[in-house]
Amino acid sequence: MSLQFNNEQMTEFKRLVARYPEGKQKSALLPVLHLAQDSFGGWLPTEAMDYVAVLLNIEPIEVYEVATFYSMYNLKPVGKFVFEVCQTGPCMVSGSENIITYIQKQLGIQPGETTKDGIFTLKLVECLGACGYAPMMQVGKIYREHLTKEKVDAIIAEYRMQVAAKN
């Protein structure tokens, strides 16, 4: 098995499992899948799920069942930055459609797609609990709220810079 948590990730894994009583380590599955996804490039290949099954001492199928149920787990590779734009009612009445169209145009991709350079993925999602700060999207751990076209441009530029700085 080539996918493995490094020392730091292993420490975090142990901290997560310790929250639940002895013998109830399966309860840590959701948090551990988050950790695995963050550790292994933003998505969960079968290998990662199998690794989690071994760590938690449960059957691989128990992991697959869960990974396919919850919308935050990516079962396919995604770009470095995933734009998850909310499309539900309250955001829609506050102008989310224009923002979605604008992002599509600026990135040249449709929802569900990743840009050729592998930097951006666009996903349409349902209410993220930011309805009063609409239109909005989630990128990684953070929320980008009160979106305007200008703000979208600035955000895209910001992430492009981050990638360029790393190269």
Partner: peptide
């Protein structure tokens, strides 16, 4: 008190 994060499911 333990914080347990869900993963996207209303």
């Amino acid at each position: 008190i333990h914080v347990h994060r869900g993963a996207g499911a209303y």
